[in-house]
């Protein structure tokens, strides 16, 4: 047992046995938490279908790896404490041999590190946010209106001959800006594998944008409780090649016209 009446972190403190033990534990735990934390989460998120979603997955990776040394540090000390002397029984163990109430160096280090991590998270977040915001102003983007109502979505495609659909069709590698609104209560328009979500508010238009980069069929779900059939307010987004998309638009009946004529009351 080292002399506890002198400050702990003096001399060659890094050569102390328990410090080394904690350091080894810390390194192992950092690797473990970082690896498991990212792998499990990224696998659950599935394959991304847009750059936006790739960014989200990257953010999850970056934040998990950035947080893992901190988490591992707390875990190493906690495990170290558990592996140390334990006392069972109805009466307390003798009081500790040392009474460290303070360690200005440790506190300063902790606060500086957490402030730096905070700054790092902020910068990473702002860069990603900036990318998302820039896409909204893309001049090459096509625009699609999204209407949510209890309990279905539908879309119309400005520039087409009045085409509307309940399944969203998007051309691949084409920036799209969505103008989202609601007819009744709040909904939330979530393109799951595309990593985009924006609330649909009654009487207001909100905007979001995405550039799908994979051909396939993905999910659209409502992410804001909107009443009785909220769970069923879902449908699909079909991302297809530009040619397929144009063909689909052309194949749709011109829904602007009405085929119904009023009947004179028959005898």
């Amino acid at each position: 047992m080292p002399d506890t009446n002198t400050p702990y972190f003096t001399g060659q403190w890094w050569k102390r046995k328990d410090v080394k033990r904690h350091a080894v534990l810390w390194v192992i735990l950092t690797a473990f938490i970082g690896y498991v934390g990212t792998e499990v989460q990224v696998r659950a998120m599935g394959a991304p279908a847009s750059e936006t979603m790739e960014n989200v997955i990257n953010l999850m990776r970056i934040f998990t790896w950035a947080a893992s040394p901190v988490a591992a540090f707390a875990a190493a000390i906690a495990i170290g404490a558990l592996m140390g002397k334990r006392h069972y029984g109805d009466n307390p163990p003798p009081e500790s041999e040392h009474a460290i109430r303070n360690s200005p160096r440790a506190i300063a280090l902790w606060i500086v590190v957490s402030a730096l991590m905070c700054l790092f998270a902020l910068v990473v977040g702002l860069i990603a946010l900036q990318k998302d915001d820039a896409r909204l102003l893309d001049a090459k983007a096509i625009h699609i209106n999204v209407v949510g109502q209890q309990w279905a979505w539908n879309y119309d495609y400005p520039g087409s001959a009045g085409v509307r659909s309940e399944v969203l069709h998007l051309p691949v590698d084409q920036p799209v800006v969505f103008h989202v609104t609601s007819k009744d209560v709040k909904h939330s328009f979530w393109l799951v594998q595309l990593g985009v979500k924006i609330d649909a508010n009654p009487g207001q238009f909100t905007e979001t944008s995405v550039t799908p980069n994979k051909i396939g069929t993905f999910d659209i779900r409502c992410a804001e409780l909107c009443g009785l059939l909220h769970a069923y307010m879902q449908n699909k987004v079909i991302v297809e090649s530009k040619a397929d998309y144009e063909a689909w638009l052309a194949s749709q009946p011109d829904t602007g016209k009405t085929t119904w004529v009023e009947e004179k009351a028959a005898a």
Binding site: M45, V56, L59, F63, G125, D132, S188, K197, I198, E224
Partner: peptide, 10 residues
Amino acid sequence: DVPADAFLHG
């Protein structure tokens, strides 16, 4: 984080 929240929110 705003972009990650756009996926995770709700």
